[in-house]
Write a protein that binds this DNA or RNA. Structure first.
Lengths: 198, 198
DNA sequence: TCCTTAGTTGAACGATCGCTCACAAAAATA
DNA sequence: TATTTTTGTGAGCGATCGTTCAACTAAGGA
C-alpha cells in the first residue's frame, strides 16, 4: 500500500559517500547533499532522520562495499598475496584523474572529534583492513613468499598505519613517484624481494 | 603613538593552534575562537583579516615552532639518532591525558580540499619532517647504527608515511599498545635492533 | 591640555546552516 | 470510485555562521 520510493537507496548512499569523502562531514552542506543525490530534504529526512544519520549510513555502506570489497579483491582472494598487498597500496593512489582522492575512513578518523558518532564505524573499517593484511601475510608466509619468522600481527598493524599515512599524503598532493617509493619500501620491509613487479 | 596591543600574538596563535587541531578549520567557529583566545572579533580581524588568515598564521606558527621544534629535538640534535627517531614517534602519542591528540599538519592535509589555502603550509611541514628523518638516518648510517646500504631517501619517505598513519590511528582511538607495536616494527624495518629501548 | 592615532568592544548584518511541515501526488484498499 | 497510506516537494523556520563598523579607550605629540 502507499506510494513506491522513486529512488535507489544504494545509489543515494554512493553519491553521499563521494561527497563526504571529498568535503568531509562538516564541509558537505545539506544543499550540497540535495544536489549530489537529487533528493529533497523531506525525502532524506524521512529515511535517514538527520544529516548525521545519512553520514552513518554512508560510512557503513562504505565499509561494507568499498573497504571490504577492496580487502577481498586485493588481500583475501589473490593467489599471490604479496602482489595483492602491493596492489592494495597502489590502487589507493593510482586513481587516474579522480578529482577527489583519499579514503572516507581516513578522513573520518581525523574528523571524528567533531563527529563522534562516526568513531565506531571508523574502528570497524580499520579492523577490516588490518585483518585483511594479517590474512594475506599469513598466506604469504605459508606459501614461502615471506620469511617463516615474520611477525604477522606486528606487520599487519604497521601496514595499516602505512596505508593510512599514504592516504594522508595523497590528500596533501604528494607526487605519484614518492607514493610508489613508499610502497616499494613497505614491500621490502616485510621481506618481499619484489623483482620486476612494478 | 596610539594605544598598545593588549595581547601577545604568539599566545593567541598557540590557542588557535590547539583549537584548530582539536576541531579542524570548519569545526572551529569564530565564537569558539573568541572564547579560546579571549579576543573579540574586531581585534582578530584587524590583525588577521579573516578566519582563513588566522588559520594560515596558526599553521605557519605550528610549522615553525611545534613541527620544527620536534624535528630538532628528536631528529637533528640527539647523539643517538636511532633513539631519536623512536622518541619522535612515541612522543606523538604518549601525550598523557591530552584531550585532543593528533597533529594539526595531518588533520589539515586531510581537510585541505575544503581549505585549499592551507595546502602550501601542509606541504612545507611534511617536507620538514621528511628531511629531519633523512638527516637522522644519514647520521645513524655514518655512526654504524644502521646498515651502510640503507636507502635514506626511501626510508625517510616511508617513515613520514608511517608517522602520518600513526597520527590518523591516534585520532581513531587506537590503544597505546598497538601504537607501540607499530613503532617497534618501524624501527625494526630500518634495521634497528632496539634491544631494551622500550 | 587637546588632538591624533592605534587598539578594543560588542551589537548586529546578510548569508547560510540543519531541519520541519503543510500540501500534492501516487499506489493500495475498500 | 472513494478512502487510506506512503512518498515527494519545496517554502521557510530559528539558529548560527563569518564578518563589519560605529562608539569607546588609551597612548604619544603639539
Amino acid at each position: 500500500m502507499g506510494r513506491k520510493q522513486l529512488w535507489d537507496q544504494a545509489e543515494v548512499l554512493a553519491s553521499a559517500m563521494r561527497l563526504f569523502r571529498r568535503r568531509g562531514y562538516l564541509g558537505a552542506s545539506l544543499r550540497d547533499i540535495e544536489e549530489a543525490t537529487g533528493l529533497h530534504p523531506g525525502s532524506l529526512y524521512r529515511v535517514f532522520e538527520s544529516k548525521d544519520g545519512l553520514f552513518r549510513a554512508a560510512l557503513d555502506a562504505y565499509n561494507d562495499q568499498v573497504v571490504r570489497g577492496r580487502v577481498r579483491v586485493h588481500l583475501l582472494e589473490p593467489a599471490d598475496p604479496v602482489a595483492g598487498i602491493r596492489s592494495f597500496f597502489t590502487s589507493a593512489f593510482e586513481t587516474g584523474l579522480d578529482p577527489d582522492p583519499g579514503c572516507l575512513l581516513t578522513n573520518t578518523a581525523v574528523e571524528s572529534f567533531t563527529v563522534p558518532q562516526a568513531a565506531a564505524g571508523v574502528r570497524r573499517g580499520l579492523e577490516a583492513i588490518e585483518s585483511g593484511f594479517a590474512d594475506a601475510l599469513t598466506r604469504a608466509r605459508a606459501l614461502g613468499l615471506l620469511s617463516a619468522d615474520l611477525d604477522v600481527e606486528e606487520s599487519a598493524a604497521r601496514l595499516l598505519a602505512l596505508y593510512q599515512g599514504l592516504l594522508v599524503l595523497v590528500r596533501a598532493g604528494t607526487p605519484l613517484t614518492k607514493l610508489h617509493t613508499i610502497t616499494d619500501g613497505a614491500m621490502a620491509s616485510i621481506g618481499s624481494e619484489k623483482e620486476g613487479q612494478r
